[in-house]
Every structure is written in structure tokens, then in C-alpha cells.
Design a protein around this nucleic acid. Structure first.
Length: 484
RNA sequence: GGGAGCGUAGCUCAGUUGGUUAGAGCAGCUGACUCUUAAUCAGCGGGUCGUGGGUUCGAGUCCCUCCGCUCCUACCA
């Protein structure tokens, strides 16, 4: 700690001097429990002039005027103004208050009153030090703006920027309401391994680690799906898991290596069972958390309406609508020409199926702004779902798309062990050892027919809070290591 | 992976064509002030200009390396 900290140290030293002075006066710089009448928001809610209350919080502003002092106290629930008057406090208690710095945490006791300016406030009769801060808080008006500091020192971001705290409060409420919704409908929340001998259930590069006791490679899970289905075999028939997945992939505005996913499974159900859950759960979240069915998109300012029912449309119909009725009769060369004419770059090696998928991805999905279930998707991309009864080339699934992005797939789950093995083999190609034999064995014991869905929680929170970067809905997003 | 931009006081930001002693607001210190709320007023202190090198009589400014951040793009369900 040499050069760059010289100036930091002068601020620290000043505050440490204040700390020592307070300690000499009998204040405990890192105090103990303090009994409060309630949190600041609760005190405001129960405001009654003259009522005696005890409150605590961090000092975020001090406005001193000689013989009277106003200050702002902040806790996890909000802000409240306190008032100290020289004539109502012991001489020493009033003097000691001037040794406090912004960022210190104090406890106060007094009575409620309304200032001449009409603000509900607390007239302090006594105060005590709870925690001395020896480092400076961020600037009070602009808050903490520097993006790197905001993520690396999220605790400062949360203190300095109330709208950041509010966004995470919303995230927490969304998770709470998802659990409440599913629990009220008889679903049980289960926990399955994060550390797996094979990383299955999705196509993604996993994080690899080593388990010393067994001297073997282990993988951080990329999805919980195969374990949740084992539980269906085991007789759990309405389950969900909402927790972290890990994928060893790029880092950008919409990807974090660890992210939160909700998976729901219901035995004896299918794709349409899952569709009903989405059509009831999203309105429930909107109603209880946001108080409105209409959400404004941060990127475009467009309004997205979550009032059910949502549009349902077949993948093939969307493609025909965009590319012409004869699209599926074209050969690959003609399809490629048509796609490129529409502005979609196509690899010459791709077959008709891949070209169609690229057109859907780059052109069609973006245009689906309001909540939409896209059904009857080519099965080649979806190894874990059943085929449509009337067309074995299509999977009996939906992809739920909002604001031009896929938010949540829902499947009629594959429970045929022979079909499942075929799909795994097609996907694995050369790497046969990657097939999860233990999972196939479980299917051979009999998994009831079931519907399942997987909802990306971070992206849902982004959508519902009008946030453009995944980093702004994850408390501690992944950053590059910084040299010490 | 490719492209563009950024990094100046604890925090938020200025800094002209390369020019002599790098500025402001907040925060801090001293003083005044009994209803303020971005309190106000007067004064004072605070900088290895991300790092290392180069060009130059002279670099915050121009060039290169590295570190970090942001955006675009590619990859990635």
C-alpha cells in the first residue's frame, strides 16, 4: 500500500482520529445490537406525531447549522430524516455528533415530529454509535457511476444508488412469487447436483473441476434436467428447481457464466400443461410484483402486454409467412439464395434445416414482440422432447418468445428410452462415452409422461425491470481478475 | 477472436494546437449560522494524469507495450 493510497490514507487517518476521539468519549466504534422500533419504512408507515421511537441506519447526509443539525439515516427499507437540537441534548452528545462522518451507522432514540417544511422527522433525544466507517462513501449527488467500481464494489453501488437496490428488491420479489405460485399449486422445490460426473441436459461447454477424494473429473452442471427427470421416475410428480447453471462460455451483455434457471416438471402433463403454467405464472408475477400487466422495454420503449392468453403459432407457419408459402419446397441452394436476399448470411455447407433455423433466429424471432408460443419446432435441435404425434420430424414443444428473445422452452418430455438413446447418439456423434447411460437406465424403469419447462430467471428479471445488461440483475457478476 | 472508444483528486467531471504552477463541484479541514433536505456563506488542504517504455527543448495531451472497463461484432441455447 504505497503510492496510490497516500491520499486515501489521509481520509482514513482523519476518520480514525474521529474514531479515537469518540472512543475516548465512551462511544464504542464497532458497537453491538440495537433494539429498533422498526425499520425506517415501518417507522414512516406508523408515523404519529410525538410518538417515541428507536431507529438505526447509516448516515448518508448531514446538514449542520450551528445549534441544530439535520441528517439522513438510511437502512435496508428506506430513508428517514433525524433532527438534533443543541438545547435538547447533553452538551457532550451534541459535540460528539460532529465527530461522525458520512457512512457511519448510528442508533437514535427520540420522538416523531413534522418539520416546517412538512417532512416527517425524528427529534433525537439520545444517540449511540453502532459502526464507524473509516473509508469515504461515494459522492452523494451523482452516486457511484464508474461501471467497474459499481460491479467490483457492489456494496457501494447498493448504498449510493437507491434504484440499484430497488431493482434487486424486484428480483428477489420475482423469485419469491415464482416459489409462492408453484408451491400453491402443489409443486415441491427440489435440489439436484451442481457437481456432476457428466454435464448433461443441454449443449454447452462445462466448467471442469477435480474431486480429490475420488480422484476424478467433475463438471459443474449446465442444466438440472436429467436429474429432475430421474425424480419423475422416482415418483415425485410435481417438482421444480430454481438455481444456478454454469456454462464455460463468453461473457457479454446477456451472458454470465453462472445464471439462474427455473425448471418445472409435471408428471401426466405435456406441453400444454406447461403453457398453462406460463400463462398463469407470468400474470401472477406482474400483478403481485409490478402491479401492472404492461411492461416497457428499455431498448425500444415498446410496451409488452402480459395479459393472457398469448399467441400460439407453428414454427413452419412463421417461416412461410416470412419467406413465402413454397419455402419448404425449395432445395438448399434456392433457400440459401432466398435467405441471403432477405439479408441473412448463410454458410454454403448448410442444409435446408440449418438455413431455416438461421432465418428463424436472425429474422423471425426478433419480430415476435408480444408474448408468443412458437410450436412444432424441428426435432433435430431438441433431443429431450417427444415428436409431434402427426409429424415425427417436429418436436412437441413450444419456445416462448417475448420482445424478440426466447424466454422459456416447454416440452412434452421424451420418456421412451429407445428414442432417447437415438437422439443422444445423433447429438453426441463420435463421442459415445458422453451419453448418460445412468439416465437411460432410469428411463428404462419407466418415466411417466410429463411436461417440463425451463425459464431463464435473469432474462425474465431484465425484461420485467427494463434492464439491458445481465450484470445489472446479478449482484456479483463475473469480471476479469484484477492484478493486485 | 475482430473492431471502436475510455482510464485525470476519495467520488462526479473539465483540461484548447504539445507550452511554463493540471482545474471545478461533491466529500474533507477551519470558522459563521436554531427548520435544513444537492443547506448556505468565507477560507484552507488534497494529484506518480491506469502501467511501462518512446518521440520532443518540453507530454495529461503524440506513438508503442501491458492492465482494466464500455460499446459493436463473432462464438455460445
Amino acid at each position: 500500500m504505497s503510492n496510490e493510497n497516500i491520499n486515501v490514507n489521509t481520509y482514513r487517518e482523519q476518520r480514525i482520529r474521529n474514531l479515537n476521539a469518540l472512543a475516548e468519549m465512551g462511544y464504542e466504534p464497532f458497537g453491538s445490537a440495537f433494539e429498533r422500533t422498526g425499520r425506517l419504512a415501518e417507522i414512516r408507515a406508523g408515523f404519529e406525531e410525538g410518538r417515541a421511537v428507536r431507529a438505526a441506519g447509516r448516515l448518508t447526509a448531514i446538514r449542520a447549522m450551528g445549534k441544530s443539525i439535520f441528517a439522513d439515516l438510511r437502512d435496508g427499507s428506506g430513508r428517514f430524516q433525524i433532527y438534533l437540537s443543541r438545547k435538547d441534548l447533553p452538551e457532550e452528545a451534541f459535540k460528539a455528533f460532529s465527530l461522525l462522518d458520512l457512512g457511519d451507522t448510528i442508533g437514535v432514540a427520540g420522538r416523531l415530529f413534522v418539520t416546517r417544511m412538512g417532512e416527517q422527522s425524528l427529534h433525537v433525544d439520545e444517540w449511540t454509535l453502532l459502526t464507524k466507517a473509516i473509508l469515504q462513501p461515494p459522492e452523494k449527488f451523482h452516486g457511484l457511476v464508474d461501471t467497474e467500481e459499481r460491479y467490483r464494489k457492489r456494496y457501494l453501488d447498493l448504498v449510493a444508488n437507491p434504484e440499484v437496490r430497488a431493482r434487486f428488491d424486484t428480483r428477489i420479489a420475482i423469485l419469491r412469487e415464482i416459489r409462492a405460485f408453484l408451491t400453491a399449486r402443489g409443486f415441491q422445490e427440489v435440489e439436484t447436483p451442481m457437481l456432476q460426473p457428466q454435464a448433461g441436459g443441454a449443449a454447452a461447454r462445462p466448467f471442469i473441476t477435480h474431486y480429490n477424494a475420488l480422484d476424478c473429473e467433475m463438471f459443474m452442471r449446465i442444466a438440472p434436467e436429467l436429474y429432475l427427470k430421474r425424480l419423475l421416475v422416482g415418483g415425485f410428480d410435481k417438482i421444480f428447481e430454481m438455481n444456478r447453471n454454469f456454462r464455460n462460455e463468453g461473457l457479454d451483455r446477456t451472458h454470465n457464466p453462472e445464471f439462474t434457471v427455473l425448471e418445472v416438471y409435471e408428471a401426466y402433463g405435456d406441453r400444454t400443461t406447461m403453457k398453462r403454467i406460463i400463462e398463469e405464472m407470468l400474470p401472477h408475477i406482474c400483478r403481485t410484483v409490478l402491479g401492472t400487466m404492461v411492461v416497457e422495454s428499455s431498448e425500444t420503449g415498446e410496451r409488452i402486454d402480459f395479459t393472457p392468453p398469448y399467441r400460439e403459432v407453428a414454427y413452419g407457419d412463421l417461416v412461410r409467412e416470412a419467406m413465402g408459402d413454397d419455402w419448404f419446397d425449395l432445395d438448399a441452394a434456392a433457400a440459401r439464395a432466398s435467405a441471403e436476399a432477405a439479408g441473412v448470411a448463410i454458410d454454403p455447407a448448410w442444409d435446408h434445416l440449418l438455413i431455416t433455423h438461421e432465418v428463424y433466429d436472425k429474422l423471425i424471432e426478433k419480430r415476435l414482440r408480444q408474448p408468443t408460443f412458437v410450436t412444432r419446432v424441428p426435432r433435430a435441435f431438441i433431443p429431450l422432447a417427444k415428436a409431434c404425434a402427426d409429424d415425427p420430424s417436429l418436436a412437441d414443444v413450444f419456445e416462448f418468445v417475448v420482445a424478440g428473445k426466447e424466454l422459456c422452452p416447454g416440452y412434452t418430455e421424451q420418456n421412451d428410452p429407445f428414442e432417447q438413446r437415438k437422439a443422444f447418439e445423433a447429438q453426441a456423434g463420435e463421442e459415445k462415452e458422453k451419453i448418460d447411460e445412468d439416465f437411460i437406465t432410469a428411463l428404462e424403469h419407466g418415466m411417466p409422461p410429463a411436461g417440463g419447462l425451463g425459464l431463464g430467471i435473469d432474462r425474465l428479471v431484465m425484461l420485467l425491470t427494463g434492464t439491458e445488461a445481465i450484470r445489472d440483475v446479478i449482484l456479483f457478476p463475473q469480471l476479469k481478475m484484477r492484478e493486485p
